[in-house]
Simulated scan of single mutants.
Amino acid sequence: MSDQERWQAAERLALVLTEGGLQRMSARALAVFLFTDAETATMGDIADRLGVSAGSVSGAVKALLSVGLIERLPAPGSRREHYRLRDDAWATLFSTQNTVVNVMLQAAETGIAATASGDLAHARLTRMRDFYEFLLGELPGLLRRWEEKHAPR
């Protein structure tokens, strides 16, 4: 596969991710992390690869950090932040390290506290909270089975 074909495939993946609900720039930045041969990337590297400004990449990198797909690495001697796709990115996406899941759970708790028991809003928010609590309770076993299945043999 040529370099051009490789990056066309990356852009196609980003399009699919965007159609699935991911913000466009986050999807494109994630595609860079997935398709690059480099160990790490800076915002400038991502911007260069995508042909956009480094500023437009900033929000995408923050979003990918917040859901645990990428991580910031120390880069002694470099004035730029370096990032890489986490080895456990997909498991982290569905773990308690995912700040979005915790934010949703806390939002439900805040809403429950602000509504009266018996209100329709209270019932909806309670169901939301219960779902996220259930999800967080089930994830450790699911992730353990994933790790067992994909552990080095």
Rank of each mutant, 00 (worst) to 15 (best):
E5Y: 13
I112K: 07
V57R: 00
V101C: 09
G51D: 07
Y83G: 03
R49S: 07
R86Q: 07
A123T: 15
E147N: 03
V57H: 01
L22R: 01
A54E: 14
T18W: 07
T99G: 09
L34I: 15
T42K: 07
L136S: 05
L120I: 14
G51P: 00
T110S: 13
R6C: 14
G118W: 05
V103M: 14
L17K: 03
A91M: 11
P152L: 09
L50R: 01
Y132E: 03
L17W: 06
R129F: 10
G111T: 06
T96E: 12
R84D: 01
K62H: 14
N102Y: 10
L135C: 02
L73V: 08
R12S: 11
A116H: 12
A116S: 14
A151R: 12
M128I: 12
S26A: 15
A47R: 02
E148M: 09
R12G: 05
A113Q: 04
L85F: 10
E138L: 12
E81H: 13
E71K: 01
T115G: 04
S78K: 12
T92M: 09
A27M: 04
H122R: 00
E109V: 10
I70W: 03
G59T: 14
S66D: 15
A123G: 08
T36W: 09
D119H: 15
G55D: 08
E109G: 00
R24E: 14
G111Q: 04
G55I: 07
L142Y: 13
G118C: 00
R72I: 03
W7H: 06
Q106P: 00
Q97L: 12
L69A: 03
L22V: 02
L73N: 02
L30T: 07
P74R: 10
G118L: 05
F35L: 00
D48F: 00
A54Y: 06
A60F: 02
E109N: 08
S26F: 08
P74H: 10
T99Y: 08
E19K: 11
S2Q: 13
G55N: 09
L50Y: 00
A47V: 04
E148L: 11
Y83T: 03
S66F: 12
L17R: 09
G77M: 06
V100E: 11
P152H: 07
Q23I: 10
D88M: 01
L136R: 08
E71Q: 05
A107N: 15
R86N: 07
R84T: 00
G68T: 00
T92E: 12
V16E: 13
V61R: 02
L120M: 06
L73Q: 09
L65K: 05
A60K: 06
G44Q: 13
F134T: 15
R49E: 10
Q97T: 13
T99V: 07
T126Q: 15
H150T: 14
R49F: 02
G68Y: 02
V52E: 09
N102I: 07
D87I: 06
P140C: 05
A75V: 10
